[in-house]
Nucleic acid binder design. Structure first.
Lengths: 221, 221
DNA sequence: ATAATAATTTAGATTTGTCTAAAAATATTT
DNA sequence: AAATATTTTTAGACAAATCTAAATTATTAT
């Protein structure tokens, strides 16, 4: 595996995330994601195409090649392992880990990352509930659904929170919800799309539409 | 404290190390240290002077300003804390830590480093025996002497090894010498400048001039 | 289907960090 | 102290990553 510049890595990572949803990624989408100008995107796409990391024809959008995906998963592995380290060992709060991990992820010593993985006890998910790819780039493809779409009375486990703001952290803390919390939806109100939820033996409580939108859960087959 | 580029940080660090011995640093010296061309050094010296990190007049060499020294000590703090982490927690060997720390040292989150320091138990020295500056940039100025200059029968503690090659590590391992080992010089032979040394209750053994040159010790007032 | 609009690319400029080759300053030797 | 050698600086070039403004292609609406 060759080495890529910090900038190249940031582009690759951003494309990976965008194509999870869209499949094909456009210049403007990526420009928005990276807070860069469209012209800069085109420049970099040419370079990454030359390195065979993505498929790209002018005006047709782009998507990562298999090699590009492998590179992306390597970066994501580093990012999420550092996030886990920061939260678990250095006691960073949930909303602080991301920014620091953005920098640490670009230190690309394989030995460092594999030893870190071992030191941390081979964690499966990062503090936001996102799965951590293994040495070979294998990543757990989870049957996640948004809490909004969870059927009634199906016990499910909170596995991911998409927003990472301090505000949502504060609210989740107040409601005692963390990654791993077991939930069941008891009622939904169509007026405001709020829902009543039960967590373990706690009394039923209410979750707003805005909050439910950001909570993702996994539930058994 | 402002942020500096990786390149600027590497220059600052190199000047700090060189001026420990010479006081004033020359263009060629620094070029050799950084494996760069003299012209590149001059370019960067102009930039660092403009940022008030060093004293520099054309053709007269240069040395860090107080601000420059503070920046240098921040970088050295990060480097040595990561070295300690790699050796202590990730079980890297002595000769492996340096290269990886060269990269990690440029991640400049103050919170990260202070929390890392705490997590590691506020270590005073890195795996090579070099002192780690504290949050305020204070660094232990140790009364170190080269083992060659240690008087007879003075009990002293190995505090630093200047060479960092695999070869010296192998030899030191064989002789059971680590940072912290207590030594006493028993005899010196002027023929080859070798010496006989006693470590704790081990039988006396021999150290060559080449090896003694690279071992530094601290001894009581 | 054509005109208007939006998205994308190209062309050319800028900054950072590096280099080579030539010029200038300093140091050394005779 | 003059000649020679060494060190350092300057001048100009280049690659990476970004930008602005203009040109081009694609999409949408009439």
């Amino acid at each position: 595996m060759l080495n890529y510049s910090t900038s190249e890595e940031n582009y690759i990572k951003a494309i990976y995330h965008l194509q999870q949803q869209d499949g094909n990624v456009t210049t403007n989408e990526l420009a928005a994601e990276l807070k860069a100008k469209p012209a800069s995107i085109t420049d970099m796409m040419k370079k990454l195409k030359a390195k065979k990391l993505l498929h790209y024809e002018p005006y047709q959008g782009f998507s990562l090649s298999n090699e590009g995906k492998k590179v992306a998963l390597g970066i994501i592995r580093r990012h999420r392992l550092w996030e886990f380290f920061l939260a678990e060992k250095l006691k960073f709060t949930w909303d602080e880990v991301h920014e620091v991990a953005e920098h640490l992820e670009h230190v690309s010593s394989k030995k460092l990352i594999d030893k870190l993985d071992e030191f941390l006890g081979f964690p499966r998910v990062d503090p936001h509930g996102d799965p951590i790819p293994d040495q070979d780039g294998k990543i757990e493809t989870s049957r996640q659904v948004c809490l909004l779409d969870l059927p009634f009375n199906k016990s499910a486990v909170v596995s991911h929170v998409s927003d990472q703001s301090t505000e949502i952290l504060e609210l989740l803390k107040h409601k005692n919800i963390v990654i791993g919390t077991k939930l069941e939806v008891k009622k939904k109100f169509s007026f405001d799309n709020s829902m009543e939820v039960k967590a373990g033996r706690q009394p039923v409580f209410t979750i707003s539409e805005q909050l439910a939108k950001n909570i993702f859960v996994k539930y058994g087959a």
